[in-house]
Design a protein around this nucleic acid. Sequence first.
DNA 1: TGACAAAGTTAGCTAAGACTAACTATATTA
DNA 2: TAATATAGTTAGTCTTAGCTAACTTTGTCA
Lengths: 158, 158
Amino acid sequence: MAVGQNAELSASLEDYLEAIFNLARESNIARSKDIAKLLGVSRASVTGALRILKKKGLANYKPYDYVTLTESGRVAAAEIARKHRILKSFFINVLGIESDLAQQAACRAEHALGPGIIAKLMSFIEFVTHSGENGHDLTEQFQEFCKNTNRELERTDA
Amino acid sequence: MAVGQNAELSASLEDYLEAIFNLARESNIARSKDIAKLLGVSRASVTGALRILKKKGLANYKPYDYVTLTESGRVAAAEIARKHRILKSFFINVLGIESDLAQQAACRAEHALGPGIIAKLMSFIEFVTHSGENGHDLTEQFQEFCKNTNRELERTDA
DNA sequence: TGACAAAGTTAGCTAAGACTAACTATATTA
DNA sequence: TAATATAGTTAGTCTTAGCTAACTTTGTCA
């Protein structure tokens, strides 16, 4: 088993790791410039982060070369991306939040939620969105419920 | 309207604000020592935070005196505590997470979720826990669903 | 192939937020 | 009321994580 250098990964480093992971999936390579753009950060900050990720054994990094993730880097990144995906899906498909907002919130919240809660959340999304078998779609029912609540609020406001 | 000094409140400062708010509700006064204990932080760090909260117009702070919140401090703190409560309630009552874990996660996640998502989440909790009228309790159904899923997983594992 | 542009790095700075150690003020009590 | 314990503060340090400006390396194309 690899040394547990990634035991404590800061929120910021998780962001870098996920960015590299996603860029590599899309365009096969992760360029410093694109990481910077994706995270809204200077190129110099990316260099700094890459050095730390290398030291933690998560990224294969050599100055002036392309970045790839090590095996344990990929594992860690996949877990982060998974959390992110599940949260976003919950916000969009269950709560009915608009996609961009869901994306941002998922990115910010992802660091805070451990595996226990993420697992439950995943189950819950499945439960809610596959409830058609029981003869009722919960997400639709919830949208209805929201509309009614809003209507009541408007009536109270007026 | 008060000057918007609290427009950008860091996660850390939100924690201090909420701690003061909660301590003041419980024991009527918030002592530096208790804030430090509650947040797991040194007394010196509390002093620093109090100075900033004062500068932002959120706390009435005088060295060697008790701390209270200003009106806008109370408003901000109440909103933070509200988010916290709603998240915790969702984790416990909907997802079935154990109370301590829910508390911690809510505390860490609270900063990430804006008013839009919190509002929806609140509606959703209401929707899910008050669904008895429709002849079904969703939280119970979900617990059932989880049990079945676990059983299937165990079967697959074996 | 040499000049220039783009990408990446380095050095040095800043700010937030935490810490410890030493000091000061307040409270307790013998 | 003087000694002592407790609470709070100050000063100085560290870490994380960002920035800009200047420099180096790499890539492109006339």
